[in-house]
Amino acid sequence: MDTFIQLTVDALTLGSIYALIALGYTLVYGVLKLLNFAHGDVFMVGSFIGFGVLQLLGGTSNPSVPIWLLLVLVTLAAMAGCAVLGVVIERFAYRPLRDAPRIAPLISALGVSFFLANSMQLLFGAEPRNYDTFSLSNGALYLKGLDIGNVRVSLLRIITISSAFVLMIVLWFLVNRTRTGKAMRATSFDREAAAMMGIDIDRVIVFTFVLGSALAGAAGVLFALRVPTTVSIGFIAGLKGFTAAVIGGIGSIQGAMAGGLILGFAESYTQGYISTKWSDLVVFSILIAFMIFRPQGLLGRAEIRKV
């Protein structure tokens, strides 16, 4: 039972991070119908921005601001940095290709992903960066927490999970309750019709990239709070995030959240009960199963092709 609780908490932590990444994919895909391969690397850059800001603020062993403010500042900086990065990528690598055959922006996105990962390696090297959150007020983030049965859920995990959910709620609000969100949904539904109704498509797309990339940045920091980050995590993170988006139904926001959590649970339980090595295989099998039995994903709409 204790193992089960532990694994469930693990799954929630992992799943909420996957969900944040998946949201970026699903938002961009919804509006542009583009699989943004560079998204995983934006996530990676986010974790590095967070690390840089953390060092600027004195590092974890000697922070110059209170802990809560430190965490908030680091996350906000990563979100802002990634938002800028996302907008730049959109402007220079995707926008010129908006009317090209669909394979063109995909290849451009591959190039961006490769470029980002290698540029980061050029500038910062391949060695892992550890946030070393244990040093924050003598390990309080790890030692304190909530007791469920015999299992202690550390404060850090609670922070990770809750901030991910807060971000998702904010996103839901932005998309469903604001004017820009409405424009986004309209664009996603039918770009041409939306343009004819006077929606500035370029602005909506930029806004989408801002949202998606900011979420990736936040996910990068939340991920790196517990695990050392390297320049090569972007590939796997992007892959898992996209898989989560597909499972949930690409283009659907609730779907991305659900998909991320499903992926988190699948991976966590496989690692706990079967083997740490083969979790990728399980995730792949789930993906294939969805492709065969429900290609539109859990909450997605079946694509109707109009001629």
Binding site: A93, P96, L97, A100, P101, A104, P105, I107, S108, L110, G111, V112, F114, F115, N118, S119, Q121, L122
Partner: peptide, 19 residues
């Protein structure tokens, strides 16, 4: 990393300038 960066740049530039 530098030579791979060159590859990435070639790929992006090609897609935009001469697909």
């Amino acid at each position: 990393p530098a030579r791979y960066i060159v590859l990435g740049v070639i790929l992006i530039a090609l897609m935009i300038l001469r697909p």
